[in-house]
């Protein structure tokens, strides 16, 4: 099975078994290991990527289902060595420890704030309830996302000022 999709702005090709999940395709076929796999049954959210603008669990999608789509992973959130405003807010608030769940939380928050730049704390908590973090207790994550909202206001879509 061979197909193409757009990954972080570049066209990529996948050729492999139909049973390959999008998560495994990204990690093991395309070498983009920033997307993590924490449960493979759609609960933990570590594998969250953005497909055609919406945050989805890449373990609950076959790679072939992404054919022709635009996929954004954590590697696509910032340019070069610099942190995006969202990533910088995570560092400022110490919103990560082991960092394993972090890519999925960043992609989720990025999608959320892109659609809803004024999401309030309750909304952020509800959305984040689909991502398990075992280290931080979530408080600093919520604070970081609240802090990062400014970078999404006025259609800035999380770009540095």
């Amino acid at each position: 099975m061979a197909l193409q999709f757009t990954l972080n702005g570049k066209t990529v090709e996948f050729s492999g078994e139909a049973r390959t999940t999008l998560a495994d395709c990204l990690r093991h076929h395309l070498g983009q290991t920033g997307t993590h796999v924490g449960c493979e049954h759609g609960v933990c959210g570590a594998c969250t990527v953005i497909v055609d603008g919406e945050a989805v669990r890449s373990c609950l999608m076959l790679a072939v289902q992404a054919e022709g789509s635009h996929v954004t992973t954590v590697e696509g959130l910032s340019e070069g060595e610099d942190l995006s405003p969202l990533q910088a807010a995570f560092r400022k608030h110490h919103a990560l420890q082991c960092g394993f769940c972090t890519p999925g939380i960043l992609t989720t928050a990025h999608a959320l704030l892109t659609h809803e730049p004024d999401a309030d704390e309750e909304r952020i908590r509800h959305v984040l309830s689909g991502n398990i973090c075992r280290c931080t207790g979530y408080l600093p994550i919520i604070e970081a996302i609240l802090d990062a909202r400014a970078a999404y206001a006025d259609g800035r879509r999380g770009k540095p000022a």
Binding site: Q32, T33, V37, E75, L83, K92, L96, G99, F100
Partner: peptide, 21 residues
């Protein structure tokens, strides 16, 4: 001090065991 670890982990550049081949 903000953690040095964060600079790679936040950009998806960590090296966890399943990332190594």
């Amino acid at each position: 001090i903000g953690r040095v670890e964060d600079l790679r982990l936040l950009r998806g550049k960590g090296r966890y065991i399943d990332d190594i081949s």
